[in-house]
Design a protein around this nucleic acid. Structure first.
Length: 438
RNA sequence: CGGGGUAUGGCGCAGUCUGGUAGCGCACCUGCUUUGGGAGCAGGGGGUCGCAGGUUCGAAUCCUGCUGCCCCGACCA
């Protein structure tokens, strides 16, 4: 992409209302525009990041055996009356009426709807296990939206729903999502720690929040230092096998959020292994049994002919929140530092002297070669000064800067800068291309 | 929802107390000079001051009401 053809509205100064670093940087880098309290447009740069995050989530959901669908944002109130949540949900639910004065709502979540789909088609235990997921915009009318996309009213969430014949089978479904989540966050360059979460009236041990550590996080978290160094399950993980050993490894050591914190248990950890930090919740998984299947009549027939309500779990990832969360975890004074996997472009090609025939030709050639090698390049072909170009590239945080100017070209060299470390290296065009296209 | 704050070109701000018809920096446009870490000079365009009433010869400025947005607390992907 040539910058001259892109839409990248950079701001030198962040709007006053933005307080936390990810919100400021997203506004300054032209990723989002606020339209109302807690409601944002995603501009090209932000949109590309959102798509990258989505794609990683999708690949890992698919790998774990979940099946993608897409449910609507608008739901009927009747469905929610069946589960009893229409009255229970309160002011956070945005309620609307259509032209026939039918009561509708903008979905804050989709348990009822997915249960409706399930009960319409699935009759037999032979169709289980089943896990359906989608990535769709949700709306929760928060009393106080804040922190940009980290706590918006409208947000993009991946929500998966598992269906099984009994609790033990549901545990396997739960474990598959648990492991999928570990992989998902790791691929985004994040260290997400599963922490015991409140299961409410359901009880048991099947609820975890996934927390990334960041100084600006909303919640206080506590964990054993060893959890930070655990190895994330690899690409070759067999999701058809029992994943309990992996889950056990990750849940053995202490890790809890403020609400679940056990001061006594934490004190037993050797002092040099105690970690107290701030965290951002980027995922939440839990088992809720027959809470919805029972009242909504989602049943399957077992091998013995008995009909039972299906056991369910739900598994959420805050996709749009992650865009902000990643920035909270990855930035410096100059701007964003994208992990490679979610970067809107891999390379920022900087033409230090637009209009100079030699430099223009060299850049055009490099741009074409990288593009042909399927490297995503944002080529700054604009008529600007070097300093401004460097500052912009640092701000938008692409992993690599490919710097081309007449001075270097005279001796056959260009410069590669790694945004994360600030390391620069002078090398030939050939060598630089090989480095990036590898 | 309780408490506090704020609203003036795209962004950041001054002007409001002491009414006289809007200004600065950045950004934008034109020209010249510059050109390897947010250039300089000159010229130029863009707002009628959140909205609605009121007071006054005259309101960004005073009064009344409303709305948006932000921050601090109780809830959540």
């Amino acid at each position: 992409m040539r910058l001259s053809k892109f839409f990248l509205p950079i701001l030198k100064e962040a709007p006053r209302e933005a307080e936390i670093v990810s919100h400021r940087l997203m506004l300054r880098a032209g990723m989002i525009r606020q339209q109302s309290a807690g409601i944002y447009s995603w501009l090209p740069l932000g949109h590309r990041v959102l798509r990258k995050i989505e794609q990683i989530v999708r690949e890992e959901q698919d790998r774990a055996g979940a099946v993608e669908i897409l449910m609507p944002t608008i739901q009927s109130a009747d469905l929610w009356r069946e589960s009893g949540r229409y009255d229970a949900y309160g002011a956070e639910m945005l309620r609307i009426q259509d032209r026939h004065e039918r009561e509708m709502l903008y979905g804050p979540t989709n348990e009822e709807m997915v249960t409706d789909i399930f009960r319409a088609y699935v009759r037999s235990y032979k169709d289980l296990p089943l896990n359906l997921y989608h990535m769709q915009w949700k709306f929760r009318d928060e009393r106080r939206p804040r922190f940009g996309v980290m706590r918006g009213r409208e947000f993009l969430m991946k929500d998966a729903y598992s269906f099984d014949t009994d609790k033990e089978a549901a545990r396997h479904a739960y474990n598959r999502m648990f492991v999928a989540y570990l992989r998902t966050y790791a691929r985004m360059g994040l260290k997400a720690i599963p922490m015991r979460a409140d299961t409410g009236p359901i009880g048991g041990d099947m609820s975890h929040e996934f927390i990334i550590l960041a100084s600006t996080g909303e919640s206080q978290v506590f964990c054993h230092k060893d959890v930070l160094d655990l190895e994330v399950p690899g690409e070759d993980t067999d999701f058809s096998q029992d994943l309990t050993p992996i889950v056990d490894t990750w849940t053995r050591a202490y890790a809890a959020t403020d609400e679940m914190h056990d001061e006594a248990a934490f004190a037993e950890i050797p002092e040099d292994k105690q970690v107290t930090a701030r965290g951002i919740e980027v995922g939440h998984i839990f088992y809720f049994g027959t809470k919805y299947s029972e009242p909504m009549g989602a049943k399957v027939v077992l091998a013995d002919g008995n009909e039972i309500p299906v056991h369910m779990g739900s598994y959420g990832i805050g996709v749009s929140r992650l865009a902000g969360g990643i920035i909270e975890a990855c930035h410096d004074d100059a701007g964003i530092i994208w992990p490679d996997a979610v970067a809107p472009f891999q390379v920022g090609l900087i033409n230090l002297k637009s209009g100079d025939a030699v430099t223009d030709a060299a850049c055009a050639d490099i741009y074409e070669k990288l593009t042909r090698a399927v490297v995503e390049v944002l080529y700054d072909d604009m008529d600007g000064r070097a300093g401004a170009k460097f500052a912009t590239m640092d701000l938008i945080g692409l992993p690599w800067q490919f710097v081309v100017g007449p001075r270097g070209l005279a001796s056959g060299e260009v410069e590669l800068k790694r945004r994360a470390t600030g390391e620069r290296e002078s090398l030939t065009i050939e060598a630089a291309l090989n480095r990036l296209a590898a």
